[in-house]
Design a protein around this nucleic acid. Structure first.
Length: 877
DNA sequence: CACATCACG
DNA sequence: ACGTACGTGATGTGG
């Protein structure tokens, strides 16, 4: 099995075309020094490398179309007619793609009168001969080749960008479309192909075609039995277009007997020509490919041409640490991610010219820390373990990069690339990952650290310039940086969790699960893994024959909403739902949390401050922002979260903060009025939208519907989404939305304006100038564009709400410090903060928290905070 | 390592 | 015609 030959066949013409469009928006950025466009060459190279890496083929052939006329144009003159001219920018790149392929040691081939498909189909058949029996992967940009899939052959179709492919196997084809590979040809015969410009049968599209094939199996059988169809327009069309259907069938069929001048032996992968390839990359201006080529063992070229030299001083004693320049950067390295449990393995400081590195942690005690760093919060926590209190810095490159753009990650290697300050290896390249994570030799470690310092030092001014340009300097200095300090404090404090309580809940759950498991096996008539959606699907939809509702990409969906619809049909379904619920609590919150309790009896989460697209925080390792609350079964977990001795937990949350923010930024007078009058907002919406005069006349159902509409508004409403959520028709949902916009015209205007703004500027902003890029806002694909529009609507709302809570936390921390209060911030859950408050301070602090939160910012509507206290988190709600 | 599922705001 | 509500993280399965 291991030494089996693997053949990779690529439709060079269509993949190159896809590559061209994958980086079409970067057309101007990808230019060779001589002015040649290189976006397609670059993307093709990237696609090819990742395919080679993933598939590890022994044999490769890239086929190209030879010219406009083929045996198909002889059969049908209009074949591929009416296509718009291929762009010049693309055509000029094709010869270079072929040249590059040769230098990579890969064979390419084209043959007059035949298309790339035919070359590939023929080689595929050759490779399936019993005496050779290759595994074949075909990569292409369009669907025509799906007909070739079989046990030995899978077809991957480029979907998006340079890395996403949809993989077709016989099973997948059957799953997705209900077709065999040969039926796929017949489907195209019936529906035609608009891009290849043959028509098939009039008025028959994919839906009808699929239906007919499901009924008759094949085109031939359909026409043998065409008279049995009941009289209809479709029947008339089928009969009238019979000839075209069979011609289309011939056009769609790939010729697997093409008279090739090459054989399988010619596709054997050869060594790449490093010297010529290096020269080619230079000509194209592909410096990254060049350096990768050389580092991957290219041969004779020395390191100097690859990367810049760097000098640094290894410090072992305390002589130089007390006089560090304030303008320098410093950086602490750890091996793992969880800095609560990690040790500092090395550190570095300096500027773009002079850099120092060390492994001697004793030096840190004497160190005068400079004012620039990367990930202040991590550094603060790490140093706190050495009893060093790191003063707040003035600049944090990680946070700065996050504010400038959330589209990419904020690693230093990414900063190096984006701000064009030289190449930096990723941490993964230096330290490995997973089980292979390890420290390299000091030489490599220090070199890497020194390079990080240099990148940071060089990028700082560019980043500052961009922050100023974006009006974001305050966002860094007055929001994210002070917040980092507050979050560090919260993480270090941690929250006490009673292991006993968790274990008691766990024991109860185990009993319930054991009983439910027995009952489920009994009702199902056999034992199976209830946790496997695949096995569960077989039991429910095959053995018990329950009606199939939704499907997922891999099989039957067994998600809650599907199962709830089935509960009435079989008693086992309710038991499965109950099992799922308890098992979730047990695995994630009992078994998951217990090992997270540290020796101090507390859980110390980490807040990720540079991740979300909107400005929210996230919480990891463990996530304390998704502790169950909605269902009683899970809510009990909160009984394990407790305050310190003689304290209570105080939970303070903003009421309807997102709708209040929406009222403010949209300036809709009716929504503002409602909040000013302290109305129940869903009742108020209900009255306006459904035309109800008196609040008493709003039924629970009216309010529920209005609540769903309000949610929808915040998310960037669509009739489809609202209909699905409320279980009403799309038409009714559409009506609701129209009425809503009539009654709240300011909201409608906001939505139109923000989408236009996203189109004009390419990004949207929160009240504090936090930005989110919306690159897909002009996408031609309806879905992609729709998603981008909803994002444009939602992000300023969710993001401004996040900004407000961040401000409140900073102000509150300051107020607590000034009062020398013993109360402590413990957790943040998006619109809520949880504090540990000593009993004697309760009254004072409760008032302080409420006031600080409500006055964090002045909006056109009041902010409202609800508070609860308790001896556990369960009670404080 | 991708996917499905389900926990939160 | 297209087929989704916005933002997250952890777990278990199965290739």
């Amino acid at each position: 099995m291991e030494d089996k030959n693997r053949l990779l066949l690529i439709d060079g013409s269509s993949v190159a075309f896809r590559a061209f469009f994958a980086l079409y928006n970067q057309l101007d950025r990808f230019k060779a020094p001589n002015g040649l466009h290189t976006n397609a060459i670059f993307a093709f190279h990237t696609m090819l490398s990742s395919l080679m890496e993933r598939i590890q083929p022994t044999h490769v052939l890239i086929a190209f179309d030879a010219g406009k006329t083929t045996f198909r144009t002889e059969m049908f003159a209009d074949y591929k007619g009416g296509r718009s001219k291929t762009p010049d920018e693309f055509r000029e790149q094709l010869p270079f793609i072929k040249e590059m392929i040769e230098k990579l040691g890969i064979r390419h081939y084209e043959l007059a009168n035949y298309e790339a498909d035919d070359i590939i189909g023929t080689l595929d058949k050759m490779a399936e001969a019993p005496d050779v029996n290759f595994d074949v992967t075909i990569v292409t940009g369009d669907k025509d080749m799906i007909q070739l899939v079989d046990g030995n052959t899978r077809v991957e179709i480029s979907k998006k960008g340079v890395a996403e492919f949809e993989e077709f196997t016989p099973d997948y084809l059957l799953e997705k479309m209900g077709l065999t590979p040969s039926q796929f040809i017949d489907l195209k015969a019936l529906m035609g192909d608009s891009s290849d410009n043959y028509p098939g049968v009039t008025k028959v599209g994919e839906k009808t075609g699929l239906k007919l094939l499901q009924e008759f199996g094949s085109l031939e059988n359909l026409y043998e039995n065409v008279e049995t169809l009941k009289a209809s327009k479709m029947k008339d069309n089928l009969i009238a277009d019979k000839e075209m259907a069979f011609l289309s069938q011939q056009l769609a069929t790939i010729n697997t007997k093409t008279p090739l001048e090459i054989g399988l032996e010619d596709t054997l992968l050869k060594e790449k020509n490093v010297a010529e390839l290096g020269q080619f990359y230079d000509e194209m201006g592909f410096s990254q490919f060049k350096s990768k080529l050389l580092t991957d063992g290219g041969g004779e070229v020395t390191d100097e041409t690859v990367s810049e030299e760097i000098k640094f001083e290894i410090v072992t004693d305390k002589s130089s640490v007390a006089s560090v320049n304030a303008d320098d950067f410093f950086y602490l390295e750890t091996l793992g991610e969880n800095y609560h449990r990690e040790q500092i393995v090395a550190f570095a400081w300096g500027n773009a010219e002079k850099i120092y590195v060390s492994k001697n942690l004793d030096l840190l005690t004497e160190m005068k820390f400079p004012e620039n760093t990367y990930d202040f919060k991590k550094n603060r926590v790490l140093l706190s373990h050495l009893n060093i209190e790191l003063p707040l810095v003035k600049f944090d490159a990680m946070l700065a990069k996050y504010l400038i753009s959330t589209t990419e990650d904020n690693k230093i290697s990414t900063i190096a690339r984006l701000f064009d300050v030289g190449h930096l290896a990723t941490d993964e390249e230096i330290f490995g990952k997973g089980t292979k994570l390890a420290l390299p030799d000091d030489e490599i470690l220090f070199d890497h650290l020194a390079r990080k310092i240099r990148v940071l030092a060089r990028a700082k001014e560019k980043m500052m310039a961009e922050l100023i340009e974006n009006e974001q300097e305050h966002l860094l200095s007055d929001m994210e940086l002070p917040l980092a300090e507050v979050l560090a404090k919260m993480e270090i404090t941690g929250i006490s969790v009673s292991q006993n309580t968790l274990e008691e809940i766990g024991a109860e759950n185990e009993e319930k699960l054991a009983l439910l498991t027995r009952e489920i096996y009994e009702l199902a008539g056999e034992e199976f893994n209830i946790n496997s959606p695949k096995q569960l699907g077989v039991i429910l939809f095959e053995k018990l024959q329950l009606p199939v509702g939704k499907k997922t990409k891999t099989g039957y969906s067994t998600a809650v909403d599907v199962l709830e619809d089935l509960a009435a049909l079989s008693p086992v379904v309710a038991k499965i739902l109950e099992y799922r619920q308890i098992n979730k609590v047990q695995s994630t919150y009992v078994k998951g949390l217990i090992p997270q309790i540290a020796d101090d009896g507390k859980i110390h989460t980490r807040y990720v401050q540079d991740l979300t697209q909107t400005g929210r925080l996230s919480s990891v390792d463990p996530n304390l922002q998704n502790i169950p609350v909605r269902l009683e079964e899970g809510r009990k977990i909160r009984k394990a979260f407790v305050p310190s001795q003689d304290s209570l937990l105080l939970s303070s949350d903003y009421s309807q903060i997102e709708l209040r923010v929406l009222a403010h930024i949209s300036a809709d007078e009716h929504l503002i009025d409602a909040f000013k009058h302290g109305a129940d907002i869903h009742t108020s919406t209900s009255m306006r939208v459904f035309g109800i005069e008196k609040a008493e006349d709003v039924t629970a159902n009216d309010r529920r519907n209005a609540k769903a509409v309000n949610f929808g508004v915040v998310y960037g409403i669509s009739d489809f989404g609202l209909a699905r959520n409320l279980g009403i028709t799309r038409k009714d949902a559409k009506n609701y939305i129209e009425t809503y916009f009539e009654r709240y015209p300011g909201i409608k205007t906001y939505m139109e304006n923000i989408v236009r703004e996203a189109r004009d500027k390419g990004f949207v902003e929160t009240m504090s100038h936090r930005r989110r890029k919306i690159p897909d806002i002009n996408a031609r694909n309806f879905n992609v564009r729709g998603f981008a529009e909803r994002t444009a609507i939602n992000s300023p709302i969710q993001g401004s709400a996040a900004d407000i809570l961040k401000i409140a936390m900073i102000n509150l921390d300051k107020a607590l410090t000034e009062r020398q209060s013993k109360s402590k911030l413990l957790l943040q859950v998006h619109d809520e903060i949880i504090l540990d408050v000593p009993l004697e301070e309760l009254e004072e602090i409760q008032a302080l928290v409420k006031e600080t939160m409500e006055e964090a910012i002045e909006l056109a509507v009041p902010l409202k905070v609800d508070e609860n206290t308790g001896k556990t988190w369960y009670e404080a709600k």
